[in-house]
Amino acid sequence: MTAQATPIMQITDAIVEVKDLHLYYGDSEALRGITMSIPRKKVTALIGPSGCGKSTFIRCFNRMNDLIESIRISGEITIDDQDIYDNSVDVIELRRRVGMVFQKWNPFPKSIYENVIYGLRIAGVRDKNLLDETVEKSLKRAALWDEMKDRLHESAMGMSGGQMQRLCIARAIAVSPEIILMDEPCSALDPRSTSRIEELIRELQGDYTIIIVTHNMQQAARVSDFTAYFYIGELVEFGLTKRVFTSPVRKETEDYITGRFG
């Protein structure tokens, strides 16, 4: 196949550089040599059919894949020019820099307040003022403050799904990460909650680098600045969202976006 334009765009101000990343589940190869850069303080959406490896891919950025025994990784991921798979890198510190929001909201069975400051507590922060401040700031950023400021000490388990997911986002930003990974954050939510989360993502953009995996192309089109299309463990196309959606370079991308399969 010959490409008229480059299917994979080069980024000048990249925060993350991925070079020839291979990932194996036991014997099967889940990611097949991915090379791309993630632009700083922009929203990057990863799309593709189920099982194409996008969730696995973002879990490489905060090394959540370490938890799974059978996974092997080769290649290189650098964040601000530091190889995160280097032995000298501390996973705990890495995870503080790279926050994550999961597909299924997972608030802890604690109060809303404690949920937000969990990241600070485990880092040993005891300053009450700082904690209070962080809670307010994070909840405000997650657009939960107005709803929740009187219920801070109630259990998080009594909230609605959308609220819980926003709480998880608040929890992630409370430790002021540089990058926030979002793994299909809206897939289990109703349309109203989804639109609130999307709004929130747009608001956060500019302060954080956000990498979002989504199944929903409209959502990718709505919230992201850049879009990467994955297919069976390979990065097929990566570029400005507008460009990818309007004039995809590769045939597979076009097929997927126009809904011919997926």
């Binding site: 959540m64 994550m100 608030p107 802890f108 929890r171 992630a172």
Partner: peptide
């Protein structure tokens, strides 16, 4: 996962 992702041991 949620806890580990926030940097907890």
């Amino acid at each position: 996962e949620g806890s580990l992702a926030l940097g907890a041991t």
